[in-house]
Amino acid sequence: MVTGREDRIVNGVVYALLLLVAVVSVFPLLFVLSASLTPYSEVLRNGGYVVLPSEFTLDAYRALLAEPAIPRALGVTVFITVVGTAINMVLTTLMAYPLSRRELPGRSAVLFMLLFTMMFSAGLIPTYLIVKATGLVDTIWAMIIPSAVGVFNVLIMKTFFDHLPQELIESARIDGAGEFRILVRIVLPLARPVMLTLGLFYAVGHWNEIFHAILYIRDQDLYPLQIVVRNIFLRSQSIENVDAAALPTVTMQMAAVVIAAVPMIVIYPFIQKHFQKGVLLGSVKS
């Protein structure tokens, strides 16, 4: 084939650029990781930047995990991530599927109505009043229910559904399958990459939850992880407070950042598996 040479050049360029991306991304990250594993004086001695620490200690991690606040917050965050994402995905799918059906009367109006809420947000206080009226303030649900559906994600899922092979859906319908059945048996397996992607988007959104917690949560026992991590930072920066004792060191701050990020990073490779060319076809045929 004549494309042999082009193939090699393209491969070369692809690998080179990917390596570049890897280098650009990874060096600043090492900054965080090494800072969490090294006494801060060591970091500063190297001009604030250590790539490979010469002294190595897990003290910061031990200290953080020994505090009751972090494991407790981790529990809260895992809960809102798992339950929240489940609710998100169910509701989003239930909206995206009908909206992907061009023949559905009123579809445009609903789409516009959704989009409208992306532009016009109601503001802090009225939203608080509704959250309060529905009894969610200072409960774990305040971090789940008010963000039960993301318009952005509905639109993305709908766009993917738009492009599924209509013949399959049509033939199922002719076979007398109901809409729910078509959705569960045909559409969802076909849409696996987008379902995983949006699941990831939602999960990461919940994992990084801080906004609703600031507004609606006063009970320290319900603080999610990111609030606790942020408080560690604020504590170390407060100068107004003479009494602040045993301030979290930079090492601890960075360790907190790592702890807060690792679980979401670890799940990513599981999702990546489904992002390879051709995997989808295999699943459809089987």
């Binding site: 009908p98 109505m113 109601a122």
Partner: peptide
């Protein structure tokens, strides 16, 4: 299918508007 989502938007997005 749309109903639960629409209720959500009505309550948490449109009502406070």
């Amino acid at each position: 299918m749309l109903l639960p989502g629409l209720i959500y938007f009505a309550v948490y997005k449109y009502a406070p508007m």
